[in-house]
Structure formats: structure tokens, C-alpha cells
């Protein structure tokens, strides 16, 4: 296990990394997500749980710069002044999406270039930002592949030759190589075997902690939320019905829906 030493005041950063105010998105008459507000601080891991269709993925897309919300604002504070990611120019938003944060998709096909080698997938963000030394790009890609436990000799293989768990780990390396401050994950363990999930979860847990990453993880799996997140937000029909510390929400749920969710699983 890699060593992480957090400074004593790590939790007391002066300003939030992300401030979400009254974010809503509609699909015609239907509510995607409505009136969501919260703050995310550096190094915090927030889980969003709820059933399919509860609006958690819609919210994630709004937060990650993919879908513009119909109302509300998403303020990101990278360095310096916070900026509303939907009022900056699209160019700036795209730049932020490539450098300041990253998205790990549920389906690796959405997050990887399937006909580009593993090394190329990891190196892309470096080349995006202007790195032009092949040897150095390769070296960093190799380092990141090792950190997500992909053997160096698989570096020039294409992701379609990888197992589901490897593809997911590759996606993580591809995002983390640019050292973002924030990572969005949409059901990162969805569709994986239980044994493969465990490995991935442990890897994520260690990476998030060692890099001091802030993360927002959408999942319907409460065990995943328990293991990875500090805070939890429970969504139902597009609304946040309950939020708080992860263990508070799971061990002492107050809202009827959360009680239903936590009682529906055997033991988390």
C-alpha cells in the first residue's frame, strides 16, 4: 500500500472546489434533476446514490460539463477565482474537462479509444496539453499503467483485448495522468464481477487517498458508497432526499426512501 501523509489541516481548505447552486435539468416535462445544491471540498469524496432513473447520472453530467443545466450554476475553483463552468467559453470548459477534472464512465467504451493502444490512451491527455517528447510520454504512461496494475508488456495492446476490469483501470489511468483535482465516476464498478469489483474498489480507494483527489461517484451500490465515499447524497425522482456523512446516512437513515434503500441490501 502506498503511503499517504495528509497535512493536519487538509480538511480545512479555505474554499470549496465545487459549488453547486440550484442545478436543475429537465427533459421536456420530465425532471432529470431538480434544485440540487451542495459544496465539494478538496479531497472530499461524495457519493450520489439512488435507483436507475433517480437523476444521479443526469446530475453528474451537469456537474462534469457535459450537459448544460437548465437552471442553476456550477462553480469550479481550480486556482484563483471560482468560475461558472457554463458561463465560460466552451473552449475553456473543454480545456478544464481535459485537465482540471476527469470522467470515468460506466462503459469503458465511452471513456477509452478502443482502437488506440493502452499507452496511447493514457498519453493522450499529456499530448493534449502539448507534451511532444515520445520517450517521456511513454515513461509516464508506463508509470500510470503500473499504478493501476496493468502490466507494462500490455502497453501497446488495444483495450479491446483487455478484460472489463482492466479496461476500467485503464480508464482511470487515462484520466489521472493529467493530475486532475476532481474525478467524476459513473458506476465505476457496474458490469464487473464481484471479485473484479473488489480489486477496482481498493485501487480507487488508495488512489483517491494518495492523490488527495476530490471525487463524485454515482453508484447504486451502497457497499461501493460505504467503501469509497465520505459523504452521501440520496436521490429520488430527480430530488435530493437526504444527504450527510456516508456512515450517518447508511447507519441512521432518516428519509423513508433511504430507509428503504438501506434495508433492501443484506449488509453494508
Amino acid at each position: 500500500m502506498t503511503v499517504h501523509v495528509s497535512p493536519p489541516d487538509a480538511a480545512l481548505d479555505p474554499a470549496p472546489l465545487l459549488s453547486i447552486a440550484r442545478v436543475s435539468r429537465f427533459y421536456g416535462e420530465r425532471i432529470g434533476c431538480a434544485d440540487v445544491s451542495f459544496e465539494l471540498w478538496p479531497g472530499e469524496v461524495l457519493g450520489i446514490v439512488g435507483e436507475s432513473g433517480s437523476g444521479k447520472s443526469t446530475l453528474l453530467r451537469c456537474l462534469a460539463g457535459i450537459d448544460r443545466p437548465d437552471a442553476g450554476e456550477v462553480l469550479f475553483r481550480g486556482s484563483g477565482q471560482p468560475l461558472d463552468i457554463y458561463s465560460v467559453a466552451e473552449q475553456e470548459r473543454r480545456r478544464l474537462m481535459r485537465t482540471a477534472w476527469g470522467i470515468v464512465h460506466q462503459n469503458p467504451r465511452d471513456g477509452l479509444r478502443m482502437d488506440v493502444s493502452a499507452g496511447g490512451n493514457v498519453g493522450e491527455r499529456l499530448m493534449d496539453r502539448g507534451d511532444r517528447h515520445y520517450g517521456q510520454i511513454r515513461e509516464r504512461a508506463l508509470d500510470w499503467l503500473a499504478r493501476v496494475e496493468i502490466a507494462g508488456e500490455r502497453m501497446d495492446d488495444r483495450p479491446r483485448q483487455f478484460s472489463g476490469g482492466m479496461q476500467q483501470r485503464l480508464q482511470i489511468a487515462r484520466v489521472l495522468v493529467s493530475e486532475p483535482k476532481l474525478v467524476f465516476m459513473d458506476e465505476p464498478t457496474g458490469g464487473l464481477d464481484v471479485s473484479v469489483q473488489a480489486r477496482l474498489l481498493d485501487l480507487l480507494r488508495v488512489l483517491v487517498r494518495d492523490l488527495g483527489l476530490a471525487a463524485i461517484i454515482v453508484t447504486h451500490d451502497l457497499a461501493v458508497a460505504r467503501l469509497l465515499t465520505d459523504r452521501l447524497m440520496v436521490m429520488k425522482d430527480g430530488h435530493v432526499v437526504e444527504q450527510g456523512l456516508t456512515d450517518q446516512v447508511l447507519d441512521d437513515p432518516h428519509h423513508a426512501y433511504t430507509q428503504l434503500l438501506t434495508s433492501a441490501v443484506l449488509s453494508v
Binding site: 473543454r94 481535459r98 479509444r113 488506440v116 493502444s117 499507452g119 496511447g120 498519453g123 493522450e124 491527455r125 499529456l126 499530448m127 493534449d128 496539453r129 502539448g130 511532444r132 515520445y134 510520454i137
Partner: peptide, 11 residues
């Protein structure tokens, strides 16, 4: 945004 072009050469 020409990183992708470079990826092709990398490959």
C-alpha cells in the same frame, strides 16, 4: 486541440 493528432503519430 491537436493532442489526438499526436496520438496517431504516437501509435
Amino acid at each position: 486541440e491537436y493532442g489526438l493528432m499526436q496520438v496517431k503519430l504516437y501509435e
